[in-house]
């Protein structure tokens, strides 16, 4: 067995990581309360959507970077994710495109 097949193999490293997990957990809880609190402010819809998605993106990034270890992952995983991200954006943009030119939707 080589020493590099587990990303963390030193007790000190994993202790440090566990402390990071706890900090991320507290941040996620706080951001959840922020999302709910903001929804009670009755912001204009565009503003409300922007804030909610921004907070969700920050939370999602925390989960992906720390719990899913993307902060220190191998290059091939990043390549897969960049390709996925491009296709995901295209997928989400599709409704916007169809909507703006009225090609598929009768307005």
């Amino acid at each position: 067995m080589t020493s590099d097949h587990i990303t963390v193999d030193h007790a000190a490293d994993i202790d440090r990581q566990v402390r990071v997990y706890v900090v991320v957990f507290v941040a996620l809880l706080a951001l959840t309360l922020v999302t709910v609190a903001v929804s009670y402010l009755d912001l204009p819809p565009a503003m409300a959507i922007a804030v909610a998605l921004l907070v969700a993106t920050v939370k999602g990034s925390l989960v992906a970077c720390y719990f899913m270890h993307l902060i220190s992952e191998k290059k091939l995983i990043y390549v897969v994710l960049v390709i996925t991200a491009i296709k995901f954006v295209a997928l989400l943009a599709l409704p916007a495109v169809t909507h703006s030119n009225g090609f598929w939707i009768d307005e």
């Binding site: 929804s39 409300a48 909610a52 969700a56 939370k59 999602g60 989960v63 992906a64 899913m68």
Partner: peptide, 16 residues
Amino acid sequence: FVDLVWIFLFPTLYLL
């Protein structure tokens, strides 16, 4: 990942 999806579903469906 399942947690991550919920993080986006929650504001999208419940709060907006």
